[in-house]
Protein backbone atom coordinates (compact mmCIF):
# COMPACT_ATOMS: atom_id res chain seq x y z
CA UNK A 1 0.00 0.00 0.00
CA UNK A 2 1.39 3.37 -0.93
CA UNK A 3 1.16 6.29 1.47
CA UNK A 4 0.12 8.80 -1.17
CA UNK A 5 -1.20 7.87 -4.60
CA UNK A 6 -2.13 10.54 -7.13
CA UNK A 7 -3.67 9.40 -10.41
CA UNK A 8 -4.32 11.68 -13.38
CA UNK A 9 -4.68 14.60 -11.04
CA UNK A 10 -5.85 17.86 -12.64
CA UNK A 11 -6.29 20.93 -10.44
CA UNK A 12 -7.95 24.19 -11.46
CA UNK A 13 -8.34 27.59 -9.91
CA UNK A 14 -11.51 28.94 -11.55
CA UNK A 15 -11.18 28.38 -15.27
CA UNK A 16 -7.38 28.06 -15.26
CA UNK A 17 -5.98 24.58 -15.07
CA UNK A 18 -2.76 24.88 -13.05
CA UNK A 19 -1.85 21.22 -12.65
CA UNK A 20 -2.35 18.58 -15.33
CA UNK A 21 -2.09 14.82 -15.32
CA UNK A 22 0.04 14.27 -12.24
CA UNK A 23 0.77 10.64 -11.38
CA UNK A 24 2.83 10.13 -8.24
CA UNK A 25 3.10 7.23 -5.83
CA UNK A 26 4.88 7.69 -2.54
CA UNK A 27 5.68 4.54 -0.59
CA UNK A 28 5.08 4.33 3.14
CA UNK A 29 8.00 5.72 5.11
CA UNK A 30 9.46 7.40 2.06
CA UNK A 31 10.51 11.02 1.84
CA UNK A 32 9.49 12.42 -1.52
CA UNK A 33 10.23 15.87 -2.90
CA UNK A 34 8.38 18.02 -5.41
CA UNK A 35 10.71 20.54 -6.98
CA UNK A 36 10.25 23.28 -9.55
CA UNK A 37 10.17 27.04 -9.82
CA UNK A 38 7.37 29.28 -8.55
CA UNK A 39 4.19 28.86 -10.47
CA UNK A 40 4.98 25.30 -11.49
CA UNK A 41 2.06 24.00 -9.43
CA UNK A 42 4.01 22.11 -6.79
CA UNK A 43 2.34 23.78 -3.81
CA UNK A 44 -1.05 23.38 -5.49
CA UNK A 45 -0.59 19.61 -5.49
CA UNK A 46 -0.05 19.70 -1.71
CA UNK A 47 -3.04 21.98 -1.26
CA UNK A 48 -5.25 19.61 -3.21
CA UNK A 49 -4.16 16.68 -1.04
CA UNK A 50 -4.78 18.73 2.11
CA UNK A 51 -8.21 19.80 0.82
CA UNK A 52 -7.35 23.47 0.37
CA UNK A 53 -7.77 23.43 -3.41
CA UNK A 54 -11.05 21.53 -3.81
CA UNK A 55 -11.44 21.97 -7.57
CA UNK A 56 -9.65 18.84 -8.74
CA UNK A 57 -10.39 15.76 -10.85
CA UNK A 58 -8.64 12.41 -10.82
CA UNK A 59 -7.79 10.32 -7.78
CA UNK A 60 -6.12 11.19 -4.51
CA UNK A 61 -5.61 8.36 -2.04
CA UNK A 62 -3.75 8.54 1.24
CA UNK A 63 -2.81 5.28 2.97
CA UNK A 64 -5.12 3.36 0.68
CA UNK A 65 -8.31 5.30 1.27
CA UNK A 66 -9.45 7.82 -1.34
CA UNK A 67 -9.94 11.44 -0.43
CA UNK A 68 -13.29 13.12 -0.97
CA UNK A 69 -13.74 16.70 -2.11
CA UNK A 70 -15.19 17.72 1.23
CA UNK A 71 -13.76 18.49 4.65
CA UNK A 72 -12.70 15.12 5.99
CA UNK A 73 -12.26 14.54 9.72
CA UNK A 74 -10.63 11.12 9.44
CA UNK A 75 -8.34 12.35 6.76
CA UNK A 76 -6.98 15.01 9.10
CA UNK A 77 -5.85 12.38 11.58
CA UNK A 78 -3.81 10.64 8.88
CA UNK A 79 -2.35 13.55 6.97
CA UNK A 80 -1.27 17.02 8.07
CA UNK A 81 0.46 19.96 6.47
CA UNK A 82 3.24 22.37 7.52
CA UNK A 83 3.27 25.71 5.73
CA UNK A 84 6.04 27.80 4.32
CA UNK A 85 5.97 30.90 6.41
CA UNK A 86 5.85 30.45 10.19
CA UNK A 87 5.24 34.21 10.46
CA UNK A 88 1.98 33.83 8.59
CA UNK A 89 0.72 30.40 9.52
CA UNK A 90 0.37 30.89 13.29
CA UNK A 91 -2.54 32.87 14.72
CA UNK A 92 -1.02 36.00 16.28
CA UNK A 93 -3.47 36.05 19.20
CA UNK A 94 -3.37 32.39 20.14
CA UNK A 95 -0.74 31.05 22.51
CA UNK A 96 1.29 27.96 21.68
CA UNK A 97 -0.80 25.99 24.15
CA UNK A 98 -4.07 26.97 22.44
CA UNK A 99 -2.68 26.25 19.00
CA UNK A 100 -1.51 22.78 20.03
CA UNK A 101 -4.67 21.88 21.97
CA UNK A 102 -7.06 22.92 19.22
CA UNK A 103 -6.69 19.82 17.01
CA UNK A 104 -7.19 17.60 20.09
CA UNK A 105 -10.32 19.52 21.04
CA UNK A 106 -11.78 19.25 17.54
CA UNK A 107 -11.19 15.51 17.44
CA UNK A 108 -12.35 14.97 21.01
CA UNK A 109 -9.09 13.55 22.27
CA UNK A 110 -8.39 13.56 25.98
CA UNK A 111 -5.25 13.86 28.05
CA UNK A 112 -4.51 17.16 26.34
CA UNK A 113 -2.18 18.56 28.95
CA UNK A 114 0.24 15.65 28.78
CA UNK A 115 0.11 15.49 24.99
CA UNK A 116 1.02 19.16 24.62
CA UNK A 117 3.93 18.77 27.05
CA UNK A 118 5.20 15.68 25.22
CA UNK A 119 4.92 17.32 21.83
CA UNK A 120 6.84 20.43 22.90
CA UNK A 121 9.62 18.13 24.11
CA UNK A 122 9.51 16.14 20.85
CA UNK A 123 10.07 19.21 18.67
CA UNK A 124 12.83 20.47 20.96
CA UNK A 125 11.03 23.42 22.53
CA UNK A 126 11.45 24.22 26.19
CA UNK A 127 8.29 24.10 28.34
CA UNK A 128 8.51 27.83 29.01
CA UNK A 129 7.39 28.40 25.40
CA UNK A 130 4.03 26.80 26.13
CA UNK A 131 2.21 29.99 27.03
CA UNK A 132 4.01 32.31 24.66
CA UNK A 133 2.50 34.04 21.65
CA UNK A 134 4.02 33.87 18.15
CA UNK A 135 5.51 37.37 18.37
CA UNK A 136 7.56 36.29 21.39
CA UNK A 137 9.39 33.64 19.40
CA UNK A 138 11.97 33.55 16.62
CA UNK A 139 11.27 32.15 13.14
CA UNK A 140 12.86 28.80 13.91
CA UNK A 141 10.88 28.44 17.13
CA UNK A 142 7.65 29.30 15.31
CA UNK A 143 8.34 26.70 12.66
CA UNK A 144 8.85 24.17 15.46
CA UNK A 145 5.40 25.10 16.79
CA UNK A 146 3.91 24.70 13.30
CA UNK A 147 5.50 21.24 13.04
CA UNK A 148 4.23 20.36 16.53
CA UNK A 149 0.71 21.44 15.56
CA UNK A 150 0.80 19.19 12.50
CA UNK A 151 1.99 16.25 14.62
CA UNK A 152 -0.61 16.62 17.41
CA UNK A 153 -3.04 14.17 15.82
CA UNK A 154 -0.24 11.65 15.24
CA UNK A 155 -0.61 11.58 11.45
CA UNK A 156 1.40 9.14 9.37
CA UNK A 157 1.74 11.41 6.34
CA UNK A 158 3.14 14.94 6.48
CA UNK A 159 2.85 17.48 3.70
CA UNK A 160 5.69 20.01 3.95
CA UNK A 161 5.39 23.19 1.90
CA UNK A 162 8.86 24.77 1.80
CA UNK A 163 9.30 24.34 5.55
CA UNK A 164 12.65 26.12 5.69
CA UNK A 165 12.69 28.70 2.93
CA UNK A 166 11.75 31.54 5.29
CA UNK A 167 14.59 30.67 7.68
CA UNK A 168 18.31 31.37 7.97
CA UNK A 169 20.79 28.67 6.96
CA UNK A 170 21.78 27.91 10.53
CA UNK A 171 18.13 27.63 11.64
CA UNK A 172 17.31 25.70 8.48
CA UNK A 173 19.86 23.09 9.53
CA UNK A 174 18.14 22.71 12.91
CA UNK A 175 14.67 22.31 11.39
CA UNK A 176 15.90 19.84 8.75
CA UNK A 177 17.57 17.77 11.48
CA UNK A 178 14.35 17.88 13.49
CA UNK A 179 12.24 16.73 10.54
CA UNK A 180 14.68 13.94 9.83
CA UNK A 181 14.67 12.77 13.45
CA UNK A 182 10.85 12.88 13.70
CA UNK A 183 10.54 10.82 10.55
CA UNK A 184 12.91 8.21 11.94
CA UNK A 185 11.23 8.10 15.36
CA UNK A 186 7.60 8.08 14.25
CA UNK A 187 7.88 6.34 10.89
CA UNK A 188 6.42 9.28 8.98
CA UNK A 189 6.02 9.70 5.25
CA UNK A 190 7.01 13.09 3.88
CA UNK A 191 5.84 14.82 0.74
CA UNK A 192 7.93 17.96 0.62
CA UNK A 193 7.77 20.91 -1.72
CA UNK A 194 10.97 22.88 -2.14
CA UNK A 195 13.03 24.69 -4.72
CA UNK A 196 16.26 24.09 -2.86
CA UNK A 197 17.96 21.07 -4.43
CA UNK A 198 20.63 20.60 -1.71
CA UNK A 199 17.80 20.27 0.81
CA UNK A 200 16.32 17.48 -1.33
CA UNK A 201 19.70 15.79 -1.34
CA UNK A 202 19.76 15.90 2.46
CA UNK A 203 16.16 15.01 3.23
CA UNK A 204 14.61 12.97 0.46
CA UNK A 205 14.81 9.60 -1.27
CA UNK A 206 13.11 10.50 -4.53
CA UNK A 207 11.99 13.65 -6.27
CA UNK A 208 9.50 14.72 -8.93
CA UNK A 209 10.37 17.75 -11.01
CA UNK A 210 7.46 19.94 -12.04
CA UNK A 211 7.29 22.54 -14.77
CA UNK A 212 4.21 24.43 -15.95
CA UNK A 213 1.80 22.18 -14.07
CA UNK A 214 3.21 18.87 -15.26
CA UNK A 215 5.63 16.38 -13.78
CA UNK A 216 8.53 16.28 -16.23
CA UNK A 217 10.73 13.78 -14.42
CA UNK A 218 10.80 11.49 -11.40
CA UNK A 219 14.33 10.76 -10.27
CA UNK A 220 16.08 9.32 -7.22
CA UNK A 221 17.76 11.92 -4.98
CA UNK A 222 21.10 10.28 -5.77
CA UNK A 223 20.80 11.80 -9.26
CA UNK A 224 21.73 15.09 -7.57
CA UNK A 225 25.19 13.67 -6.88
CA UNK A 226 26.13 13.19 -10.50
CA UNK A 227 23.49 15.26 -12.34
CA UNK A 228 22.15 12.24 -14.22
CA UNK A 229 18.85 13.82 -15.23
CA UNK A 230 17.26 13.02 -18.55
CA UNK A 231 14.87 15.96 -18.94
CA UNK A 232 16.38 19.19 -20.32
CA UNK A 233 14.35 21.35 -17.91
CA UNK A 234 15.66 19.42 -14.92
CA UNK A 235 19.20 19.87 -16.18
CA UNK A 236 18.76 23.65 -16.38
CA UNK A 237 17.30 23.72 -12.90
CA UNK A 238 20.21 21.66 -11.64
CA UNK A 239 22.70 24.00 -13.30
CA UNK A 240 20.91 27.10 -11.92
CA UNK A 241 21.25 25.68 -8.40
CA UNK A 242 25.00 25.52 -8.86
CA UNK A 243 25.12 21.86 -9.91
CA UNK A 244 27.72 19.95 -8.06
CA UNK A 245 30.89 21.96 -7.52
CA UNK A 246 32.94 18.87 -6.72
CA UNK A 247 32.08 17.00 -9.90
CA UNK A 248 32.93 20.16 -11.86
CA UNK A 249 36.38 20.20 -10.29
CA UNK A 250 37.06 16.63 -11.31
CA UNK A 251 36.04 17.32 -14.91
Amino acid sequence: MSAIALKNLDISYGTTKVVQGVNIEVAEGESFALVGESGSGKSTVLKAIAGLAPDWTGEIAVLGSPRSHKVDHDFATRCQMVFQDPYGSLHPRKSVDTVLSEPLLIHGLGNRNARVIDMLAAVGLDQRFRFRFPHQMSGGQRQRVAIARALMLEPKVMLLDEPTSALDVSVQAEILNLLKRLRREQGLTYLMVTHNLPVVSFMCDRMAVMNKGRVVEIAPATALHDGSFTDPYTQTLYAASGGNPKSKETL
Binding site: S170, L176, K180, P198, F202, N244
Partner: peptide, 20 residues
Amino acid sequence: RGLLAAVPQMEEKRDELPVL
Protein backbone atom coordinates in the same frame (compact mmCIF):
# COMPACT_ATOMS: atom_id res chain seq x y z
CA ARG B 1 32.93 27.53 9.90
CA GLY B 2 29.65 26.68 11.66
CA LEU B 3 27.63 28.65 9.13
CA LEU B 4 29.44 27.01 6.23
CA ALA B 5 28.90 23.53 7.61
CA ALA B 6 25.18 24.11 8.20
CA VAL B 7 24.48 24.51 4.48
CA PRO B 8 23.24 21.27 2.89
CA GLN B 9 25.37 20.17 -0.05
CA MET B 10 24.17 18.98 -3.42
CA GLU B 11 26.00 15.73 -2.78
CA GLU B 12 24.83 15.27 0.78
CA LYS B 13 26.18 12.25 2.64
CA ARG B 14 25.96 13.52 6.20
CA ASP B 15 23.16 12.05 8.23
CA GLU B 16 22.76 15.12 10.35
CA LEU B 17 23.72 18.71 9.71
CA PRO B 18 25.99 20.35 12.27
CA VAL B 19 24.18 23.18 14.04
CA LEU B 20 25.59 26.20 15.78
